[in-house]
Structure formats: structure tokens, C-alpha cells
Simulated assay, not measured.
Amino acid sequence: MIDDLDDTEAAPDITDLATGRARQLDDECATCVFAAGNPANLRTGRLAHFLTEVADTQSYIVCHETMTGGEMPAMCGGFAARYETDQTQILERTTGYTRVPPPGAGPRPAGFASRADGLRKVRLRTTGRADGPPPVIVIAIDGVLTPRAADSPPPGDLSWAAHIYDGLGPNGEQRKARVWLAREHGMWLTGLLARGAELVWATPPGTADPTWITSRLGLADNAPVLTVDDVAGPGDGSTDSPIAAYTGARPVAWIAAPGHSDEPSWARDRVAAGHPTLLVSVDPMTGLTGEHVDLVHTWLNTVWRPYHP
């Protein structure tokens, strides 16, 4: 299983002994970690871990299939098509690359185009200390951490457990209901906190204290709670919304179920003002998934700038 590979060891040398150039695959291999459908069988969050390690070391990913069976090591074709780091830029400007087919792919026809050709590359940045305030990840809890399921757990392979809420509802009246929570959500959000990001909860007016949920996920109960209109959304239909007042110009990722009317205009206005912004839309029937969290980790790599003492 590819996920069992030890990524703590130094990456092997990818120099082509015949040309002196760095070997780089011209396409994704059959089990590329970036390929659709997860043919590498990576655990949820594992790809984000790989990218975080690469961003911190400013290195690259070596194709796992070129490290077995007598193959010569080569840079992962899926990585090379999507990302740039200090080391990849240095290799390109010094030795250059010898592009080779993945193991078992055979000779290439004239005009060959890889599955990843045309992708816009993302510059991975160091994920340690930063030169500005940390990014803010705002989570609208309903439908994200609490899928709208009733008698049976939501679809998917998470470790769902039913909890009985017995307290005040949004209208101030006593309410008793089954709530499905997944322990993976607490683990994933803890991983985002470890990156230096700040978590903020967004709840509609009159909603019960979210710590009933977050404490059951193993999360600290000191995260800020912002009251956000459940129709308008993050912009709250104004220029002085609670989210705007709290986050200012800091990078913001907004994770919510769809349906907030001002999400697009809020995001456009922030981006136009030079404030990095990410919208993550979550299916309220399934809740937060590993793919959503991977997206946030990758975004953090692009906005959490390196610190220069």
C-alpha cells in the first residue's frame, strides 16, 4: 500500500546519469497520488500531509513506482504538473529536466499530451511562521459538522456516532434531537490548527452554544463564535458584517453548506481588495469530507507566507 511508505527518509537522487539532468515523469503513473479516484489508496488527509512536508522543505515528490523494481527515480508527473517549489525552479534553471514516461507506459507518440497538461501551477510556500496575522477558517457548523441526517448515519466511511441533544433550540424552546458527529472532523480540524490557522464558528441568530458539538469532537471550547445570517451568509448583506469586522484583511476560508445568497459577491469583493479568500461548499447530507480538508491545506500553502527573520 502506497500510504505505508516512509516519507521521513530523504528523497532519492533523481539525476539522470546519462544526461546529467533531473528525471521527471511526463504524466501521472497508474497509481499517482494526484490521480482521480485515489488509485494510491491514500488515507484521508495523507496527500495534504505530503504537500505540507514538501512546502516546508521546498522540495518535490518522487514517484513511488520509480523507487521499486529497478526503476530509476524520477519526479512525480502529477506533482510536476501542479506545483512549483524552490528546488523545482532551481532544477529547471540549472540542469533542466529529462522527461520520461511512467513505468510500463511505453514510447510516446508525436504530440503526446499528458492528462495534467494545461493545469495552472501553484507555488507552494513554507508553512511555518508567517509574516502577518494567521489565516482564519470560518466554519458554518450546520451541515458541515452536523449533517442533516435523521435515523441513519450519513453516507461515507467516517466513524459516525449518534449523540442526543437535549437543550434549547434556535427558537428558544426546549428541543431533543439526534445529532450525528464524526471523530475524524475533530482530528482534521486539529490538523488545521497545527498549521497556525485560526478556527472560528459561524452560527445563525438564536443558535445554541456550539461547544456542545465541538467538545464532543475533542476541540477546545475557546474558538470565537460569530453570529451570521443563515440566508445572506458571510457578508451578512452589508459591508460591516461580523466576519468582516473580525477578520479584516486576513486570509479567510469560508466552509459552509450552499444556499447563502451573498457568498459570491463577498468573495469577489475580498479578492478584488487583495484579501485571499476560499469558498468551500459542503453537501449538507454528507458533511465535511477529507477532500474539503485537503483543499484547505493546499490553499494554506499558497497564502501562509514564509517568515524571514
Rank of each mutant, 00 (worst) to 15 (best):
L288E: 07
D294C: 04
Q174V: 04
T214Y: 00
W299E: 03
L51F: 06
D142F: 10
S215G: 02
A182C: 01
G218Q: 04
A244V: 07
D13W: 08
S241E: 01
M285F: 13
N222M: 07
V33H: 04
Q87R: 14
T227D: 08
G172F: 02
H297L: 12
S281D: 13
R120T: 15
P258C: 11
L278C: 05
G106Q: 10
G78M: 04
T95P: 00
A150Y: 10
P12E: 12
G237T: 08
T302L: 06
R108D: 06
S238T: 15
P155T: 11
P170K: 02
L300M: 09
P135Q: 06
A149S: 08
T247W: 00
H297C: 14
D86W: 13
F34Q: 11
R183C: 09
T298C: 06
D26I: 14
V252C: 10
A197W: 02
L278N: 04
S265Y: 08
R123M: 10
V231G: 03
G104Y: 11
R178M: 06
A253L: 06
T57S: 12
A220Y: 03
R183A: 15
V303M: 03
L168A: 13
Q24V: 15
R21G: 03
G233V: 04
G104C: 10
A162G: 01
